[in-house]
Computed example of a mutant assay.
Amino acid sequence: MGDKPYTKIPIAECGEPLAPLPSVFVRLAPHPYQSLGAPYGSVSPFYLRLGVIAALERAQALLEPYGWQLAIFDAYRPIAVQQFMVTHTFTILCRERGYDPQQLEPAIASEIWQQVYQFWAVPSSDPKEPPPHSTGAAVDLTLADPAGHPLDMGGAIDEISERSFPDFYDRHPEQMNAACFAQRRQILYQAMIHAGFQRHPKEWWHFSLGDQLWAWQTQQKTGQRDIIARYGRVDL
């Protein structure tokens, strides 16, 4: 049900360590998943692989002409947190539809799980199929003004709706402020792409570099089938 095509990409782990995000980046606080009680333990969500941090710094430099900066929503995510958030999202969607998550008909449960996994990665414990955030190579972020206040991007991070699709406002120019939102998403995309990242096909805020999703998308764009992932799951 939650199978993703990128999970078949081979991983040749490079052994690069995780490191804390430098203070040059805005951190959105309080951290949303920690606030919900997600089981991070002593692990910080604001860690990434060293190479990914270096690429983020390049992306931020590309935003200087606009006077904007990157604001980090979420980065490293242990498997236990991925499982917590997937379950939490399922519960929220059930309640929004007026269902008791514990008393669902199989067909309805299957439909809601499909909606969950349209955006969320499967919290697989298989080291060959790690969720992107558990590799330290994926980051959820947005744009912020010089004072560190997030810009309105036309949809909230983690919102489960069509507004989360990167090109939503390009396809729906009749929406209020569509041109503004489309431009901001495009500016974020260009900065991140030029720094080496790939963007999640269905999430304007999710970017990765060096993980399976990045490798799969790079293969799709370049036709080079020998590109593989260099970052696998990291357990702290």
Results as ranks from 00 to 15, higher is better:
97 R>D: 13
89 T>S: 15
83 Q>S: 14
89 T>K: 15
127 P>E: 11
115 Q>T: 06
127 P>Q: 08
90 F>S: 12
73 F>A: 14
108 I>D: 14
92 I>W: 03
118 Q>Y: 13
106 P>W: 00
118 Q>H: 13
109 A>K: 06
90 F>M: 11
99 Y>E: 12
99 Y>F: 09
94 C>W: 06
114 Q>R: 12
97 R>V: 04
86 V>D: 15
106 P>Y: 01
123 P>G: 06
125 S>I: 08
125 S>Q: 14
74 D>K: 00
125 S>G: 05
88 H>P: 08
82 Q>C: 14
120 W>R: 10
79 I>K: 10
97 R>N: 06
95 R>E: 15
113 W>N: 07
108 I>N: 08
93 L>M: 11
93 L>G: 07
95 R>V: 07
97 R>Y: 02
79 I>Y: 06
106 P>R: 01
124 S>M: 07
123 P>D: 12
72 I>N: 02
78 P>L: 03
87 T>V: 08
105 E>I: 00
101 P>G: 05
116 V>G: 09
86 V>I: 12
127 P>W: 04
82 Q>G: 10
81 V>Y: 02
123 P>A: 06
85 M>P: 06
83 Q>V: 03
115 Q>L: 09
126 D>A: 04
101 P>S: 04
127 P>Y: 03
100 D>K: 00
88 H>A: 13
123 P>M: 06
104 L>I: 03
127 P>H: 04
72 I>W: 02
109 A>R: 11
92 I>A: 11
119 F>K: 10
72 I>H: 01
93 L>A: 09
93 L>V: 02
86 V>Y: 11
119 F>D: 15
74 D>N: 07
75 A>M: 04
115 Q>W: 05
82 Q>M: 12
79 I>V: 15
88 H>Q: 14
88 H>V: 05
84 F>G: 13
113 W>F: 04
82 Q>N: 14
96 E>Q: 09
86 V>L: 12
110 S>T: 12
115 Q>D: 14
102 Q>W: 02
89 T>M: 14
73 F>D: 15
104 L>K: 06
109 A>C: 05
121 A>Q: 07
90 F>E: 15
108 I>H: 06
87 T>S: 14
104 L>Q: 07
72 I>L: 02
88 H>C: 09
90 F>L: 13
106 P>H: 02
121 A>D: 15
111 E>Y: 01
97 R>K: 06
122 V>W: 10
95 R>F: 03
118 Q>K: 07
104 L>F: 04
96 E>T: 03
85 M>L: 09
75 A>R: 03
90 F>H: 09
125 S>V: 11
111 E>N: 07
80 A>R: 12
109 A>G: 04
87 T>A: 14
80 A>Q: 14
79 I>L: 15
84 F>S: 13
